[in-house]
Design a protein around this nucleic acid. Sequence first.
RNA 1: GCGCGUGUAGCUCAAUUGGAUAGAGCGUCAGCCUCCGAAGCUGAAGGUUGUGGGUUCAACUCCCGCCACGCGCACCA
Length: 590
Amino acid sequence: MLPHKQIELKLQAAVLEILPDADVSAVLVRPCDPKFGDYQSNALMSLAKVRKTNPRQLATDTLAKLDVSEVCEKVEIAGAGFLNFRLKNSALVQTLETAARGEHLFFDKAAKPKTIVIDFSSPNVAKPMHVGHIRSTGIGDALQRTLRLLGHHVISDNHIGDWGTQFGKLLLGWKQALDRAALECDAIAELERLYKVINAECDANPERLEEAKAELVKLQAGDAENISIWKEMIRLSQIQFDTIYSRLGVNFDHALGESFYNPWLGEVVNDLLAKKIARESEGAVGVFSDGSLPPKEDPFLVNRDGEWIADPALVRKSDGGFNYTTTDLATIAYRLKTWSPDEIVYVVDDRQSGHFKKLFLVLARWKPDATKRTKLIHVGFGKILGDDGKPFKTRSGDTVKLGDLLDEAEARAFKIVSGKNSELSEAQRKEIARVVGLGAVKYADLLPNRQSDYIFSWDKMLALTGNTAPYLLYAYARIKSIFRKSEAESEIRNPRSAIALAEPEEIALAKHLLNFGITLEAVAEEYRPNYLCNYLFELAVHFSRFFENCPVLKAEDAAMRDSRLALCGLAARVLKQGLETLGMEIVQQM
RNA sequence: GCGCGUGUAGCUCAAUUGGAUAGAGCGUCAGCCUCCGAAGCUGAAGGUUGUGGGUUCAACUCCCGCCACGCGCACCA
C-alpha cells in the first residue's frame, strides 16, 4: 500500500477513536508544500469547526492515538490545526523498490470498480470533423483511459449524428445535384457542398424546403431508395471517422448513432404522456415545469419581461417528428437497461449545459429509481479561440477541418525536428514529427482547465520549452538515451539492486513519483485531465533537475549508478504511462 | 430582459473536500556546456485574483450587489 494511503487509513482510525460518530470519508491526506512536509491533512479543522471544539486540541488528541512511525517521521501540528507528515527515507525507498520490481506503478486500482458509460466525440454524418471535435474527442479519450487504468469498467460510446432533419436536404441534393466525380474524390466535401446548395435554396424558396421535408418524411417512413442513399452517406462518413480516429489512436466500444434509437422514440413520448410527465402544447409535446424548484433554478421556466413563462423540453414536434431530447432519453433508457451503469458521462460542449440540465431532470421524473443508482454527468468544456480571441477559423473564415489541422501539426513538427536533428533519416524524422505534432495538439487541448476557453497557438503548443508536449517527450527521450548508453536493457532493473537517495534532486524526484496515483484519482474524480498534464510537467522538471545535478552513468560507484538507473527507469515508466493515459505516444529519440 | 459560464503577473494558463507566503511557462534581465541529449538548468523582476460588501481561525474558491466579455433562451442538434 502506498504510504499516503497508510497514513490516511491510520488517521481515519485515530479520528474515530476520538470522535466515534465522525464521518471520516473527508479525512484525507494530500501532498503539500515541501517546506511543511510531504503530506498534509487539514481535515481536523473542519471537523472541529462542525463540533465547535478547539482544532488544535483535536489535533493533539488525535495525534496521541496515531502511530504512523512505520512510514513517517514525527508528525507535526501546525497553524490552526494542520497535520504535517514527513516520509521516512526507508518508506520512500521501499515504495520505489517495489515499483522497480514491477509490483506497482504508484497507483492502486479502484477498491470498488464502477461501470461507467462515457459518451464523447459524436461527429455528424455528411460533415467534416472539425477543430471543435478535438475537445470532446481528446478529453473523452483521456478520461476513458484514466478510468480504465484505475480499474473501472468503461463503456465508450460514440453517439454519431446519423439522423435528423438535415437528411431531407441532403437527400434532395443527392438526387438532384450530385457530382459523382467529386464524390469519388472527396465524399465529405461533396456532401457538405450539397447541403450548402440545398440549404441556400430552401432559405430562398419555401417550395424547395417542402421538397426537402418530403424527402425526410419518405426516409422516416422507410422508403427503400432514400434508406439506401442514407446508408451510403453513413458509409462514406464512417470512412472519414475511421481515418481520423485511427490517426488519433482513439477507440470506442460502441458507435450507436442516433438512428439506432429510432424504433423507441414513439414509445418514449407515449410513456411520458401516459405518466403525465409530458403534455401537449401548441401541437407539440413537451415536458413542463413541475413546480418543484424555485423559478430561478427551474430550467423549465424562463423570465420574459418580469414574468416567468414556460420553457419546456420538447419531445415531439407539431409535425410529429422527434427532437434530440427524445433521442437522448431513448439513449439513456437503452444504456440503463443494457449496462446498468453507475455513471453516464457526457463529454459535450458547455453551450449544451441547459439541455443536459433539462434532460437529467426529465429523466429523474421518468425513471426515478434508475436515476437514484446511476449518476448522470455533463462534462462540459469551453471553446477554442484564434489569437484574435474569436472562435478559431481559417484565414478565409471557414471552420478548420480536423484532418487539415493534424496535417499541419505534423508538417510543423517535421520542420522543427529536421532543423534540430538533421542527422536522423527522413523516415525517423517523419515518425517523430507524427508523434510530436499530434501530441502537441492533444496536450495543448488537455492542459487548460476544460471549462474555460483557450487560445489556439501553433507556436505555443510546439514550443520546445515550457509546459508543452515536446518538452515532456524530450524528457522521456533523454532518459531513454541514458539507457541506450548503459548496458541495461530494461527500465525494470535488477530486483536486487537497492535504491539509495541522498541528493535533494533525487529525493524530490522520488517523492513526486509517489503522487502519480493521487493525481490519477483526481482526474477521475473531477473529470479533469489537466491535473495529469501538470503532474507530468512537474515530473519532467524534477527529472531535468535530477539529470543536471546527479550523474547516472558517471556516478561515483556501481551502487549509486544502479540506484539512479532504477530511478530513471521509474521516471520513464511513469512518464510513458502518463502520456499514454492522455492519449499520447512517445518516441525513443527526437 | 432572464438564465448559465468566464474574469488570476505584460502574454498564455495553474491552483486537487474552504487551507499555510496565489504558482508555472513565455517574454524581459543576469548566470551555467573540458561532464550521461543546452529541445536543458539556476537566479531576478513582475499580483489589491474584474469590483464593492459579507460569512470564516482561514476565501481565487462559499453568499449578495455591480462591471466586462462569451454562450443559451420551446418545434436545429
